[in-house]
Write a protein that binds this DNA or RNA. Structure first.
Length: 110
DNA sequence: GCATTGACTAGGG
DNA sequence: GCCCTAGCCAATG
């Protein structure tokens, strides 16, 4: 995996997010190997045109919705459709819908 | 190869 | 709770 670019790793992580769950840009960056590249992740997301990449499950820190190419309303609708409780530009019960590889292992094993 | 941009984050007012 | 500032990173011109 030495030749894997940061971009590819980010897309890989986002593609692994299960329905009804969300992750912050910082979490994706960390999972990709660059804890400080949250901004870069956002840039990559804007370029992700693949339908297999659920970019709408990537949100900002603190449960903020973040952005969605200028159509935040659509992102809000998609998240709510998956069971995520969204109010205004924020996510309620963010800790309950937040997803990370480490948490996934915990809930999968138990 | 340098400068600008942008779906970010944390900290201070 | 909201607005502004500084810091960080990859992509693009």
């Amino acid at each position: 995996m030495t030749g894997t670019t940061f971009r590819a790793r980010v897309l890989r992580v986002v593609a692994g997010i299960p329905p009804g769950r969300v992750v912050t840009y910082g979490d994706v960056a960390t999972a990709a190997g660059r804890p400080r590249a949250a901004r870069a992740v956002g840039n990559i997301m804007g370029s992700c045109s693949d339908s297999r990449i659920p970019c709408h499950r990537v949100v900002a820190s603190g449960g903020q919705l973040g952005g969605y190419g200028g159509n935040v309303s659509l992102k809000r609708a998609l998240l709510r459709a998956e069971g995520v409780l969204v109010v205004g530009t924020r996510i309620r019960q963010f800790a309950d819908v937040r997803w990370t590889a480490r948490l996934a292992r915990r809930q999968r094993t138990r």
